[in-house]
């Protein structure tokens, strides 16, 4: 309930056995993830309308996000989160901090 929920991070990356989340070595930006990789959103950087819009589209701390594919010309990149698909450009994805989940399989 309420924003207590935001502290319950890490529920997505349960497969990860070791340690506390986020572990700094896994901390990266969304544009660094490759096709098929998953991460947990830690924070959206930037401010104003940009940040507000991404938050409203569900880019919230603790949300699981997966890279579906890069566009044929590398940019933009298609992601899946909260059960829907959305494309962001690299410059925007670079402002989303994520904790990369270890490969599950």
């Amino acid at each position: 309930m309420g924003f207590r929920w935001r502290w319950r991070r890490g529920r997505g990356c349960r497969r990860r056995e070791e340690g506390i989340c986020p572990r700094m070595e896994n901390l990266t930006t969304l544009d660094e993830l490759r096709t098929g990789e998953e991460g947990l959103i830690v924070k959206v950087l930037g401010n104003g309308a940009f940040r507000q819009r991404l938050l409203e589209m569900g880019f919230l701390p603790g949300t699981r996000i997966r890279v579906i594919r890069y566009a044929p010309l590398e940019d933009p990149v298609e992601y899946e989160l909260k059960g829907y698909h959305v494309a962001l450009r690299h410059e925007e994805a670079a402002k989303v901090l994520v904790e990369k989940c270890p490969k599950s399989s």
Binding site: F50, P76, H85, V86
Partner: peptide, 13 residues
């Protein structure tokens, strides 16, 4: 100039 809105393109099924 509208405030720097991000490029957010939904790809619906």
């Amino acid at each position: 100039k509208e405030e720097d809105l991000p490029f957010v393109l939904e790809l619906p099924p």
